[in-house]
């Protein structure tokens, strides 16, 4: 699953699903989303079977996210760049296979219970 390192891959627009998504991100497709690196990704369904448009990386994400994980954690565990995961998430979201929840801007948190919980939690480590 290693990325080709130097040569950008130029793919034909018509190539469609035969092109692996991470190859697509090299030269062509960009994700529709700009999910925060700590957005929580959670599977909405059990992992689907392989089919057109659903590759092993998609299935790996759904399997991994049976418990919620941050976008950056998904990327790190699968050894794929963040941008690639964002593209794969677009596909998965379109099929309602995962949910992605963006973090609340901390400036809108209603009170400082989160700060309290963090401080107490870190002290107790």
């Amino acid at each position: 699953m290693a990325m080709p390192d130097s040569e950008p891959l130029w793919v034909d627009d018509a190539a469609g699903p035969v092109v692996r998504p991470y190859a697509m991100t090299r030269g062509r497709a960009a994700a529709q989303n700009r999910f925060n690196v700590i957005s929580q990704v959670v599977a909405a369904q059990p992992a689907p079977a392989l089919e057109v448009g659903i590759g092993p990386e998609h299935i790996a994400i759904v399997n991994l996210c049976q418990r919620p994980l941050a976008l950056a954690e998904v990327a790190a565990h699968l050894g794929l760049p963040l941008g690639t995961i964002r593209v794969l998430l677009d596909d998965l979201l379109a099929r309602r296979l995962v949910k992605v929840i963006e973090p609340k801007p901390h400036t809108t948190l209603p009170d400082d219970s989160v700060f309290e919980a963090l401080i107490n939690g870190i002290r107790a480590l």
Binding site: V42, K99, I101, P103, K104, P110, S113
Partner: peptide, 20 residues
């Protein structure tokens, strides 16, 4: 439940995610 939670599928509470 504490405030600041997001509701996932079927009401599963997702953790509040913070970063430094």
């Amino acid at each position: 439940m504490e405030s600041g939670h997001s509701e996932g599928e079927g009401g599963t509470a997702l953790p509040t995610a913070t970063k430094i």
